[in-house]
């Protein structure tokens, strides 16, 4: 524990950020997030929006997989539900943006509740397979329910518009996505300060004794599925406003694996882990692309190196699994611990 943070009330002891240092760093982060769009170019703003969307979805999956221990490979399909809901509402009814995003979340939540039903009986790999099956079914629905989804051609989405301002650039979308994602992350953090979050962890750690403590397993597993897919639905809605076209191929199975990998690489069952994991998974391929671009190579060599990039990315993930099973957040914690006493003790 950090010294010099004597806490004098239970409320203080239970707060999310309990030391002055943490408050200071949070302020720095807030300033950085506010200032970033004014200094970054279009490319970096594009990445920032993508990272925000991925953080929202990864945080959702983390509630389900990291905290409740239910492995799901359906996160991308739930994002698809959210994206299609937003796209269809925008196209057919033209309802307000924030309402559309909420609706996307709720419709995805309904999907999640249905897919979650087998979770009382099947766990682990079996549940993962069941969720894959669900995403295949959803893909079929996306591709064939022409009147709503527009079939294989998909739906083109008009730019989000709030109070007459059209969110048609990454710069503007940044101001929409980052606050939404921040709220969602804060909500998840709050969840695990209360009985609901504790019940999720109890189910993950030992479901039999959770039941004896008065936690109805099915209800809480479904709740976890519902919340997780709500997050995916909102993230999918943002995705729809970001890419402005939604097709059945927008949310492939590999994307679900991407989110699962983000949860694992970041650190399962921690709020920070989902954030770090999503940033890592989104940014590292881009960083590798940049590095290859900087190398003084001919155009041919760059072309040859592009598969190498993928290999390096894969190797990094494997490296994390082997050398730091607790993920990026554990590395972060170790760095923090080091600086608590630095420079008085190394």
């Amino acid at each position: 524990m950090r010294i010099g943070t004597a806490r004098s009330s239970y409320r203080h002891d239970e707060s999310l950020f309990d030391s002055r240092t943490q408050h200071a760093w949070l302020a720095v982060l807030a300033v950085a997030l506010l200032g970033f769009p004014f200094f970054a170019d279009e490319y970096w703003l594009y990445l920032a929006c993508l990272v925000a969307i991925n953080i929202a979805s990864t945080t959702g999956l983390n509630i389900l997989t990291g905290y409740t221990g239910l492995v799901s490979l359906g996160q991308a399909a739930f994002m698809g539900i959210g994206a299609y809901t937003v796209a269809a509402l925008e196209q057919k009814l033209g309802t307000p943006v924030l309402l559309n995003l909420l609706a996307g979340g709720f419709v995805a939540m309904l999907g999640g509740l249905v897919v979650g039903l087998p979770s009382l009986r099947v766990k682990g790999l079996y549940l993962a397979i069941a969720t894959i099956a669900a995403s295949v079914v959803l893909h079929f629905v996306f591709a064939n329910w022409h009147s709503v989804t527009g079939g294989h051609a998909g739906i083109t989405v008009a730019p989000a518009e709030i109070l007459g301002v059209s969110f048609d650039t990454s710069f503007r979308l940044y101001w929409l996505f980052v606050p939404i994602t921040a709220l969602m992350v804060l909500g998840a953090a709050n969840l695990f300060r209360t009985r609901i979050g504790r019940a999720f962890i109890a189910i993950r750690d030992r479901d039999i004794s959770a039941e004896v403590l008065g936690i109805p397993l099915l209800r809480y597993k479904l709740l976890s599925f519902g919340l997780s897919s709500f997050y995916a639905g909102v993230a999918g809605g943002m995705w729809a406003y970001f890419f402005r076209v939604v097709t059945p191929e927008s949310f492939p199975l590999i994307m679900s694996i991407f989110f699962l990998a983000a949860v694992i690489v970041g650190g399962m069952g921690t709020i920070l882990g989902a954030i770090l994991g999503a940033v890592f998974m989104t940014m590292v391929p881009e960083a590798l692309k940049l590095i290859v671009g900087w190398l003084p190579l001919s155009a041919d060599a760059t072309l040859i190196l592009s598969p190498v990039r993928t290999i390096v990315f894969g190797a990094l993930i494997v490296g994390f699994l082997v050398f730091e099973p607790l993920g990026l957040q554990e590395i972060w914690r170790r760095i923090r611990r080091f600086f608590h006493l630095w420079p008085f003790r190394a």
Binding site: L191, R195, I196, G197, A210, L213, G214, I215
Partner: peptide, 16 residues
């Protein structure tokens, strides 16, 4: 705290 679960009323919205 988990022991008290069944006696608490907090719902998901409160929790978030």
């Amino acid at each position: 705290k988990l022991g008290r679960h069944a006696h608490l009323r907090t719902n998901v919205l409160d929790a978030l």
